[in-house]
Nucleic acid binder design. Structure first.
Lengths: 212, 212, 212, 212
DNA sequence: TATGAATGAGTCTTCATTCAT
DNA sequence: AATGAATGAAGACTCATTCAT
């Protein structure tokens, strides 16, 4: 990378980093371009060399933040060992593991959760599974298909819709319990949520063409 | 009601109505106080006689809109006949009926859905079940307890949490499918959603103290 | 006084009292008509039955406040005994006594002092000596002429101008020292001020047509 | 100075000049930011680039105006010749000269006088003698100490307090006479004022440690 | 006489965006 | 590529005053 290229990259990153911190702490509408460039140590005009407006930077940050989260969850999943006795059971456990990992991370970082929940235009599912304009990474859904291929005896009636249901259920209920303790605490929610997720998975598993 | 009281009521309503229409069509941040009062045909100062700011009127509208929706659903439910053979089954059917009614209404009025989904600070569940500052109505949860009392043989392990899970699942998945047709169409979603809801209900039903 | 008359009087007084307290504590420009009528417990429109605007009520309060102050000073002066040996000396002592009384009162009530100093359109002298639109009381100047008549041997070259000089000097210097301790403290100022006043008086006394 | 610096300086000056003229003619509270920027030929936002609000510009103008006045008086004083026979007498004459110069200037420019008298937060003395946030100039008090050093036989008991008394006396009495001709005309006041000032000075002069 | 709902002009202030340097 | 001074539209909100009741 040339010297100029490097400088450009530094400025871009400074802007992204400053925005993220300000958005997280003050909220987006309370953050002005002035705040961002000041924190980043660049001039106002420079902002417009890299972004169209505040909302473009927001969208990039939401996607980036969520991707990092799921990627880390996926990496942790790889490290874990699961009993291989029952393919269906294992699949269920892995799903719960991943959901649990992501929710625990969000609970640890409530500012991030707040940022995500307030700026998720199209639901939590998309962050996890859908390709995106600013994104490039491998998606969770790919992993699911891989797992399914590895276990020819396990059939999911409709794996994509099932995931959609699970992810949105987990997202919607945990956002409100973590941030507001309302209507119950997150700790109270978890067993019930995972039990519901298991119920949904079970209702989607077909063995030898017969629904369980 | 005196003449003055009546006029006040009219102004209040004009402001609420204008705001609703503008919020629905232009979005809240794109709507100025100027727009609202002009459409309502009152003076700018008058707005501040009735509301602290734009966000107070928004909150009132969100609550009012959602309550109307659930109340209508509840009224339709009362009109409906359900086969009484099986208490558990009947309970399941009624739940599906209500959810279905609300979602169908939202599908018919996408602007309203958009307005609700963008301004629901604490999740869809609260609109349906929780008391609210600006609200006074009987809540759905009351009906559930009544039904449960009527059927002593049916026990729900945790009715409130179960409803929370169901309502949030329905809300989150239908918002995105109705508004974006993404990741699937609403029509594709419905059977899967209802099947998931049934799975959740089943996993909560206990008969004679034994979980099914 | 009739019942209606009495009620009117009560409202007028409530408005004056509320205004005074608000002006004193918040300042005039920070006080709105709304504040005044609310504190007085009357309707907004009622204010305009009694006063043209905020500034009319301010002017009345300034005059009333200052008159009360000088009247009390005058009454204290009457109670006091002065050695009668020397007419000129006695006159000097009485003048100092009165000035001192007023300044001590102002030092005790700094909010009042602030109110007066900020709203004295035409100098401190006028409060003490000049007739005023809203005033009716006997003025200090009358007393001076009486004292002079009682002492045919003492002549003041120009009693009215002398008083003007003394009162303005005392007002201007004590306002700033009491409120700001600047450039010196009020306690430091007093001996110097009174010495200067005595110098001015001496330079105005003529005995048998010869200046002293 | 660069081109940009120059432009900034021009804008700043345009704003100061416009404000001054508007404050002088319409009064401060009657002058809006809109008026100022329009007269200055700059955009509204530009005002806030240079000043926090209307009151900051007012304070700067008051200080600037007063300093210019005293500086001119001081310069005129330097040109003047005084008989050197008597150090004490000369000191007295110089003091009167300066006071007279300033008061004559104020009489010529009543709008300026009005502006100063209405916006002098801490008395006239401070303008003449005290350092100030927006000020940098040499102060009158310095001159006094210099004169005193040059005349070792003349001792002022308390030069600073004496000046305070004189300046406030002159300010308070001349403001009201010039602006209102009340209680006497300025022309009538002058001999009496200067006679009082001389009396104050005399009462402060000590020769060889003995008060005169 | 008293009320207080209604008015709407008027003010401050912010801020995204531009463009000459 | 980078700057940051300048812009001015846009918005929120206040408040003295009026007037129908």
């Amino acid at each position: 990378m040339g010297k100029i290229e490097e400088k450009k990259f530094q400025k871009l990153n400074a802007l992204l980093k400053s925005s993220y911190e300000l958005f997280i702490t003050k909220g987006i509408s309370q953050t002005s371009i002035h705040d961002i460039v000041q924190k980043a140590g660049v001039a106002k005009g420079t902002f417009y060399l890299y972004f169209k407006d505040k909302y473009e930077i927001r969208d990039r940050l939401v996607v980036k933040t969520a991707e990092r989260l799921f990627l880390k969850g996926y990496q942790e999943l790889q490290k874990e060992k699961f009993a291989e006795e029952d393919a269906a059971k294992m699949f269920e456990e892995k799903t719960i593991f991943l959901i649990d990992y992501v929710l625990e991370e969000l609970q640890k970082n409530k500012l991030m959760l707040q940022f995500l929940s307030k700026n998720l235009s199209r639901g939590f599912f998309h962050l996890a599974l859908e390709p995106h304009e600013y994104s490039s990474e491998v998606k969770l859904i790919d992993y699911y298909y891989k797992v399914l291929e590895e276990n020819p005896t396990v059939h999911l009636r409709n794996p994509e819709i099932m995931l959609f249901l699970i992810v949105e259920l987990a997202g919607a209920t945990s956002f409100s319990t973590i941030l507001e303790n309302d209507p119950i605490s997150f700790e109270q929610l978890k067993p019930e949520l995972y039990s519901a997720i298991r119920a949904i998975i079970q209702s989607h598993i077909e063995v030898d063409g017969h629904e369980t």
